[in-house]
Design a protein around this nucleic acid. Structure first.
Lengths: 104, 104
DNA sequence: GCTTACCGTAAGTAATGTCTTACCAAGAAT
DNA sequence: ATTCTTGGTAAGACATTACTTACGGTAAGC
């Protein structure tokens, strides 16, 4: 549930595929596994990591678990990235002003 | 030079520390290594990964290499995340409309 | 009730990734 | 010219991670 966890979770290619699949449409574990070149338990393990990072949530439907994207983790990652971006840009601007002080 | 590379690069804690250190202020390899609990070659290797992802750039200064954040990789990551975010939000909105069709 | 479909977890293995020391090259300093 | 500083790269040790098969547990279908 931190941006660090989100980054680590989304770094792995197949785990990211799981996530992007769920973004297109929610679905049960078995269905996702069938569309990927890995076993169902592997998908389950990826879903646990994504879940711990707050990137997906599951709702129970009988014996099936329907997973879908949770905006929470995504929002957190976005918040960090946007803050970082403005920081970097601010430093860039002040750096340029230092080199070319046109407003003295 | 893709959002995949950026995600993978920023997933590692110490590599992210290298990156965040450079975001605060550009600097040579040795200086960064001194502020971190890893050796200088380790920092060099991390910088290579960050560089390949377009997250940092180096400018040569005699025998030293001054690394600084490259907005390019950061911008790419931001673009992907923002696109993803709006996609997810759109699906959320249409999902709600499907369940509660108040505007028929 | 019995079987079938669905899924999480455990255990072990294979693959990746991160770190260290050792080495080499290039410019700065004396 | 030699020495010192700086840093990239190679090789190998170590840790982490992703995958597989095997198992158990719960709900649906007949």
């Amino acid at each position: 549930m931190s941006y660090q966890e989100s980054l680590a979770a989304l770094a792995d290619p197949t785990r990211r595929q799981v996530f992007e699949t769920l973004a297109r449409a929610p679905g049960p574990v078995g269905q996702i596994a069938k569309s990927l070149p890995v076993s169902r338990p592997a998908v389950s393990q990826h879903l646990k990591v994504l879940s711990d990072a707050g990137l997906v949530v599951a709702r129970q439907d009988g014996t099936r678990r329907i997973y879908s994207v949770d905006p929470k983790g995504l929002a957190e990652l976005r918040r960090w990235l946007d803050g970082f971006w403005t920081d970097v840009m601010d430093r860039f601007a002040s750096e340029i002003n230092t080199l070319e002080p046109k407003d003295d």
